[in-house]
Design a protein around this nucleic acid. Structure first.
Length: 424
RNA sequence: GUGGCCGUAGCUCAGCUGGUAGAGUCCCGGGUUGUGAUCCCGGUUGUCGUGGGUUCGAGUCCCAUCGGCCACCCCA
């Protein structure tokens, strides 16, 4: 036997057994987004590398070590998208959709990051991404969060909680950043190796450290919320008031900073304790400076992404999500003439009853095997066509899910008989 | 990128201190020449992840490598 070709590490097949949960998540999100007035947009999976460097930040982990980057035949450096926001903003700019206009958009699809795979973290993973552009908030901020809360309710997801924070304007953050560097420098000897590395590059991330030995030091550090500019503070207070008015519980986490550079003001994250180390199920925030940074007309924006794999994991924890129901009718064939007539009969019935699902027994098999397949298909009804029935111009119908006798029906009025039995 | 645990039939797994690979399930056929479950009988399937080493002999021991899971890190 020739060598089997292995799948790419961290890239998974989603099999029919799991597809019910995926469709539940995607379907609920699509319905809800439509109801909130969001329109779908589809953008390429590949963009110029420069886009992500500029949007996400050159010194972030994502850009520094996690991107799938390659040179195409023409020598351009291209990258498989590690996230969706940058591409959506690029699309708005490329298509001249700004000029003071507002856009409420969503898109879904695969993202790629070259990380070591583990539970809830894959190299190809899928997100539903939502963006509202041209609206300064805080009303959209609140509405977006309300949308996500409603989605969890619809899906029956309970083990999630909301954390929010404000990063302020880039200017305010710069001032705070300096204070933070100063503080940690004065305690340099107490920093662990990771934190020392971050001190110059991204000191805000030190606040995120899970190292228990660092906890005391971090708790005494200057708090971002105390250094917000007055407008950002007002914005944040208005958001908190809205969330309270809607009745969405939240916790202000001053150490929630986010790993992508483009965020400003509102950031939020839905986290769960049911998924192990990868606990963020949905997160996002405001990116008021991003579009200008990408060369577009300065426009405020806010958005978030949800990880489909993680939502599916939450959804299937309490048991498998039923995929589409079985067929209505399974057609069992016996004898050469009947077998030959099977496809034509099924096609006729599908034309007559377009909303019913017919499963024709394909590939032969003896009677017992065909009935076993009919049973396992979960069909409500078995339709039996043998050579003798065919000769008499009839077919037999047998309910498989309830105690009831088998009956015969003329082929000419089969559709009526099937409907009656399915309804009964 | 670092660390821990793990790779035996399509799937779930057994295989003690090295002696030449097994069960259940699935699938197919039969018992029942046209009726699902259960039962009974029979059948198909393995380079024991891969490569090397030790040995008379390796699924079992050693090394390397690939892959999986989990954690660090990072994030959806």
């Amino acid at each position: 036997m020739t060598q089997e070709i292995q799948p790419v590490r961290g890239m998974n097949d989603v099999l029919p057994a799991e597809i019910g949960a995926w469709q539940a998540v995607e379907g609920a999100a699509r319905e809800l987004l439509t109801a909130y007035g969001y329109e779908e947009i589809r953008i390429p999976v590949v963009e110029r590398t420069e886009l992500f460097k500029r949007a996400i930040g050159e010194y972030t982990d994502v850009v520094e070590k996690e991107m799938y980057t390659f040179a195409d035949q023409g020598g351009d450096s291209l990258t498989l998208r590690p996230e969706a926001t940058a591409g959506v903003m690029r699309a708005l700019i490329s298509n001249g959709m700004l000029r003071g206009q507002r856009h409420k958009l969503w898109c879904a699809g695969p993202m790629f990051r070259h990380e070591r795979p583990q539970k809830g973290r894959y190299r190809q993973f899928h997100q539903i991404d939502v963006e509202a552009v041209g609206l300064p908030g805080p009303d959209v901020d609140a509405e977006l969060i309300a949308l996500t809360a409603r989605l969890w309710r619809r899906l029956g997801i309970e083990r999630v909680r909301l954390e929010i924070n404000s990063l302020g304007t880039p200017e305010a953050r710069r001032v705070y950043r300096e204070k933070l560097i100063e503080y940690f420098r004065s305690h340099h000897e107490r920093l662990d190796a990771d934190s020392r590395r971050r001190l110059e590059g991204n000191p805000l991330r030190i606040l995120d450290s899970k190292n228990p030995e660092m906890r005391e030091l971090i708790e005494a550090a200057p708090v971002l919320t105390d250094h917000l500019d007055p407008e950002s503070r007002e914005h944040f207070q208005a958001l908190c008031a809205s969330l309270e008015a809607i009745g969405i519980p939240f916790r202000i986490n001053p150490r929630l900073v986010r790993g992508l550079d483009y965020y400003s003001r509102t950031v939020f994250e839905w986290i769960t304790d049911a998924l192990g180390a990868q606990d963020a199920v949905c997160s996002g925030g405001r990116y008021d400076g991003l579009i200008a940074q990408l060369g577009g007309e300065s426009t405020p924006g806010i958005g978030f992404a949800m990880g489909i794999e993680r939502l599916v994991a939450l959804l299937t924890q309490s048991g498998p999500v039923a995929s589409a129901a079985g067929p209505d009718v399974y057609i069992v064939l016996s004898g050469a003439q009947a077998t030959a007539a099977g496809v034509a009969l099924a096609e006729r019935l599908r034309a007559e009853l377009p909303n019913r699902r017919f499963e024709l027994n394909l590939g032969g098999g003896n009677f017992k095997a065909q009935f076993r397949r009919a049973d396992r298909s979960a069909a409500a009804l078995a339709l039996i066509l043998g050579d003798d029935e065919l000769a008499r111009g009839v077919a037999s119908l047998k309910p498989l899910r309830r105690e009831a006798g088998q009956s015969e029906s003329p082929l000419s009025t089969l559709a009526v008989a099937i409907e009656a039995m399915l309804a009964g």
